[in-house]
């Protein structure tokens, strides 16, 4: 999600102010002017200053950019590939929601069900068909089970499947 530098700077300033206000409530060390709030405050002030600089630079750039001649288009051979196709924000948001789902259901539903649904949903977002996604999800869930639960002995939660845990 690319935002304008002016807005980006503002976000950093607001974030800095929030940190600073919380850090001010921390106690001081006996006899010293420094305490637990000292380093967070430095970070907070730093963020505010950087935010202002980024905003101002962005504003200056935006002002001079008006009426500028468009840059010469690069030939196909020289165009950087990194700047290839850019999609919308819908899919990243969906992926984020899928992770939230995983976090919320991991304990109650158990790893196997939660992971299968998570992978299937993610595969779907990335363009896989429902059957392919489900197959991939089952393979992934049992692969992770074999590696992390059986081999590395990570106590993955069983959730509703606890009665059949092996």
């Amino acid at each position: 999600m690319r935002v304008d530098d002016r807005l980006l700077g503002l976000i950093l300033v607001v974030f800095g102010i929030a940190i600073f206000l919380i850090a001010r409530t921390f106690p001081l060390m006996a006899g010293l002017p420094y305490g637990p709030g000292f380093f967070p405050s430095i970070a907070a002030v730093g963020l505010m200053v950087c935010g202002v600089v980024i905003s101002v630079t962005g504003a200056l750039k935006a002002r001079t950019a008006v009426g500028a001649a468009p840059a010469e288009p690069l030939s196909a051979d020289d165009r950087p590939v990194a700047a290839a196709v850019k999609g919308g924000v819908v899919r990243p948001v969906l992926i984020g929601l899928i992770v939230v789902f995983f976090g919320l259901t991991l304990q109650p539903l158990g790893f196997h069900i939660s992971a299968t649904l998570t992978v299937a949903a993610a595969a779907f977002v990335f363009g896989a068909g429902p059957i392919g996604g489900l197959v991939l999800a089952l393979v992934a869930a049992f692969g992770v089970h074999a590696v992390f639960y059986s081999l590395l002995r990570v106590p993955l939660p069983w959730g509703v499947l606890t009665p059949v845990a092996w």
Binding site: V99, V119, A122, G127, A128, G132, A137, V144
Partner: peptide, 15 residues
């Protein structure tokens, strides 16, 4: 394909 790779990376990250 990415539709195989990315979900697997996602699950590996979380687990």
């Amino acid at each position: 394909p990415r539709q195989v790779l990315m979900p697997l990376i996602l699950l590996s990250s979380l687990v």
